[in-house]
Amino acid sequence: MMNDNDVIETLDQLEAFLRAVENGGLGLANVEGVALATNNSNGRPFIAVLDEKRQLILGRWVSTNVYENGKDMVRYGTKKIH
């Protein structure tokens, strides 16, 4: 499910989104991973939250900057200590 009004524009917003997914703050069930991807029809980048069958549970559009520079954060997770 994608909402055109929900665009992750900065790396800080990406980090907050990933933390919300990791901590269960979005109320999603069966989360197994996240991935950066592009829409097949128009090439628009997004972050996908996936279940155990690699099905899309939730998606958020991301800016080109986040897509290009947020890959390591998605791949390796957030590293800040709270």
Rank of each mutant, 00 (worst) to 15 (best):
L11S: 01
L36R: 03
G27T: 12
F46I: 03
N42A: 12
M1V: 12
I8T: 00
N40D: 15
R19Y: 08
I47R: 04
T38D: 00
A16L: 10
D12I: 05
E22C: 06
T38L: 10
G70K: 03
L18G: 03
T10P: 03
F17E: 02
K80G: 00
T64Y: 00
D6H: 10
R60V: 05
E68I: 03
D6F: 14
N69Q: 08
L26E: 08
V21A: 02
D4M: 09
M2E: 08
V66G: 03
P45M: 07
F17P: 04
I57C: 08
L56M: 14
A16P: 03
M73C: 06
V31F: 12
L58E: 05
G70M: 04
A48E: 04
A37V: 05
L56D: 01
L28N: 14
G24D: 06
E15T: 09
A16F: 04
R60H: 15
A48I: 04
A16K: 11
D12Y: 06
V49G: 05
N5L: 12
M2I: 15
N5P: 00
E9D: 08
E22D: 15
N3R: 07
R19G: 00
M1I: 04
L56H: 11
G25V: 08
L28P: 03
E9G: 01
M2H: 08
L11D: 04
G59C: 05
V7M: 10
A20V: 09
T10L: 04
D51M: 10
H82E: 11
G70L: 01
D72Y: 04
M73K: 11
D12K: 06
T38H: 07
Y76D: 11
H82T: 06
E68H: 12
G27A: 11
N40K: 15
D6Q: 13
S41W: 12
V74I: 09
E32T: 02
V7S: 04
G33F: 14
E22K: 15
I57V: 14
M1A: 13
Q55C: 10
A16Q: 08
L26F: 15
W61H: 11
L36I: 07
G33A: 12
K53S: 11
K80I: 06
A48R: 14
E22P: 00
Q55L: 13
D72V: 04
Y76S: 08
D72N: 12
V66S: 05
I47N: 02
E9R: 05
D12L: 08
T78G: 08
N5Q: 10
N69S: 07
T78Q: 11
D72H: 07
V66D: 00
M1D: 01
L18S: 03
I8M: 06
E9W: 01
P45G: 03
E9K: 09
E68F: 09
G70E: 00
N5Y: 06
V21W: 01
L56R: 15
E68A: 12
R54D: 00
L18P: 01
Q55K: 11
N39W: 09
D4L: 14
V74D: 03
G24V: 14
D12A: 13
G70F: 00
M1S: 09
P45C: 08
V34D: 01
I57L: 15
T10G: 01
T64W: 00
M2K: 13
G24I: 14
A16T: 09
L36E: 04
G77I: 07
S63D: 01
N69H: 09
R75I: 06
R75F: 09
F17T: 06
